[in-house]
């Protein structure tokens, strides 16, 4: 049976203001899904609710296990998060940052072993960033940092990977490089990925399915593998207004209606 990550009926309120309204979605093994929406639609709040950072109603389940009932340590063995940018300023090598991914698997007083270091270096090698291992994290470019954080996420070895706009600070080329690596990891390792993004063009290129979030609720979802152009255009316009879709081979490019 295929592994499944399920978000069931999540509601989040800040005071009287409802931020998420009965949000539900399902992601299957090897699927890379995008969460699209305008600013303030609740994308980051949904990821924070899944990670247990904020109180919520509803639940999220990894292969039937209710993450809401797990401790931070056990939850971190099921769900990993790649933030927009890592909050670390520097003073640690990239390898030390990657090794932090083992935290959920180590005893509180235990340090990573030689085997852990070798495995972390192998993962960095796979991602093409082994050469950064001994460099100070603070001196890396933003693209290199995101690659190191992706390696940390792989070291954490969770079935579910959540990503909160990991490409937001990257240039055009680095966006493609990082997103391609993430997609490869999810497909090759059979993980379940959910990424929040601002740019629908990148989302359409790299994600298998897109969830469209508006005012705290999921309006609709698009399956990029099989939905027709007319459905994709209609669904995207519910969030982005008047748009046009241009087709380039098998890929789509979204532009504003008046510019088309």
């Amino acid at each position: 049976m295929k592994a499944k990550f399920e978000v069931r009926d999540i509601c989040v309120k800040y005071g009287e203001r409802r931020i998420l309204d009965h949000v539900g979605l399902e992601i299957f093994e090897g699927e890379f899904c995008g969460l699209l929406g305008l600013n303030g639609s609740g994308k980051t709040t949904l990821l924070h609710a899944i990670c247990g950072f904020i109180p919520m109603q509803g639940g999220c389940f990894v292969n039937g296990t209710d993450c809401g009932k797990l401790t931070e340590r056990k939850r971190a063995r099921e769900v990993a998060l790649i933030p927009q940018t890592c909050s670390l300023e520097g003073g640690r090598t990239a390898l030390e940052v990657v090794l932090m991914g083992y935290n959920a698997w180590l005893h509180i007083l235990e340090s990573p072993s030689r085997e852990h270091r070798e495995k972390a270096l192998d993962i960095m090698d796979k991602l093409g960033c082994r050469g950064l291992a001994d460099k100070d994290f603070g001196q890396l470019s933003l693209g290199q940092r995101q690659m190191v954080i992706l390696a940390r996420c792989m070291v954490q070895d969770t079935p579910v990977m959540l990503m909160d706009e990991p490409d937001s600070a990257l240039d055009f080329l680095n966006k493609h490089i990082v997103l391609q690596k993430i997609r490869n990891v999810i497909q090759n390792e059979g993980k379940m990925g959910l990424i929040t993004m601002h740019d629908p063009n990148f989302a359409m290129k790299y994600c298998d399915r897109l969830f469209l979030l508006k005012d705290g609720a999921i309006l609709t979802q698009i399956d990029m593998r099989k939905d027709p152009e007319c459905k994709i255009k209609r669904d995207l316009s519910t969030v982005y207004g008047r748009i046009e879709l241009l087709k380039n081979g098998k890929e789509y490019l979204m532009v504003r209606g008046e510019d088309a």
Binding site: F53, K74, A76, P83
Partner: peptide, 8 residues
């Protein structure tokens, strides 16, 4: 939040 996400 990053600490919590890493299981601390």
């Amino acid at each position: 939040n990053e600490c919590r996400a890493l299981g601390m």
